[in-house]
């Protein structure tokens, strides 16, 4: 029974990781860039929400609707000021630039907010501890369920947007071949700005989830980046669904590890990540994040 409970909790935790990974996976799909500032941006979003809540005295769920537009704006600046410029500088430059941004963001947050850990748990009332009991030994946390549902809605929404809408077609076209897309009348720069804004909104939601379900501090970004990246890699080359599956596998691995020994929680997550790498190496298909390409089957294009 305890294992069943751990399995369930792992799946729920996986929803959080998938939420955290969605923005990373999406940006990589569109621009082939692994954004090393991803975790720091999520922590920045959490601190923005904290400031909004303190200034206006509103609940994080209301503050979120102010924070997300700010994140969208940051996405625009980030794209035009950093990513667009670094994309033309060869494969190494985006990594160096985004790593520099993470260093910059982490330390600016530290300079403003200090080393204290923050959390929204006190601001969201009974949601932070409320749970539904199933049988004797299984409790489903309401907040974890909400985060899981959010991740699901976000991923389904992204999937529909990419496969069914005009904007989705434009993004996929830019991802596959920006030059060809511009020949057929698209402006890849503008499409990439839109993609970056969308990624930043996902990161904003993930940052809010981070602050609600646990605590954060200025240097928490690195760990978030690592979890997000592990979820993307474990989920593999597939679609945004792969990200969800990867997040769930990571969550299950961590929870199972923690049941054996509390020290093993993170270690078992990392080990599963490395095992997946090894298995995929054997199978010879290590490339990840091709979901935008894979979706471009002719039938979808003509849709």
């Amino acid at each position: 029974m305890i294992w069943l409970n751990q399995l369930l909790q792992g799946i729920l935790l996986g929803g959080y990781y998938a939420l955290m990974a969605a923005g990373l996976s999406f940006l990589f799909g569109v621009m082939r860039v692994i954004n090393l500032a991803h975790g720091s941006l999520a922590v920045l979003a959490a601190f923005l929400l904290l400031m909004i809540d303190h200034w206006l005295g509103v609940s994080p769920f209301i503050g979120l609707w102010l924070m997300l537009p700010i994140m969208a704006l940051i996405g625009m600046v980030f794209q035009l000021g950093i990513l667009e410029r670094s994309l033309s500088g060869g494969p190494l430059i985006p990594l160096l630039a985004t790593f520099g941004v993470s260093l910059l963001l982490d330390n600016i947050l530290f300079a403003i907010f200090g080393a204290n850990t923050q959390s929204f748990a006190p601001d969201i009332g009974s949601l932070s501890y409320g749970s539904w009991a199933i049988g004797h030994s299984i409790d489903i946390s309401q907040l974890d369920a909400l985060i899981f549902a959010t991740a699901l809605v976000l991923l389904v929404g992204m999937h529909l947007l990419l496969t069914r809408s005009q904007l989705g077609r434009m993004i996929r076209a830019t991802a596959i071949d920006a030059e060809a897309a511009s020949l057929s009348g698209l402006d890849p720069r503008r499409v990439r700005v839109v993609a970056s804004v969308m990624a930043m909104i996902m990161i904003g939601v993930a940052g809010a989830a981070l602050g609600m379900r646990s605590s954060f501090e200025p240097y928490a970004g690195g760990a978030q980046l690592i979890y997000a990246f592990e979820a993307v890699v474990i989920g593999g080359t597939g679609s945004l669904w792969g990200t969800l599956i990867g997040g769930i596998m990571l969550g299950i691995a961590q929870n199972m590890g923690a049941t054996i020994n509390p020290h093993l929680s993170q270690i078992s997550g990392h080990v599963v990540f490395l095992l997946v790498l090894l298995v995929r190496m054997r199978m010879g298909s290590l490339r990840l994040g091709n979901f935008l390409r894979k979706r471009m089957r002719p039938s979808v294009v003509s849709a």
Partner: peptide, 21 residues
């Protein structure tokens, strides 16, 4: 076997794992 950004963060994961071990 990892390339580009995958190698970059993959190494970070490895470093974190070794630290925890």
């Amino acid at each position: 076997h990892l390339r580009g950004g995958e190698f970059a963060i993959g190494m970070w994961v490895l470093a974190t794992l070794i630290q925890q071990l």
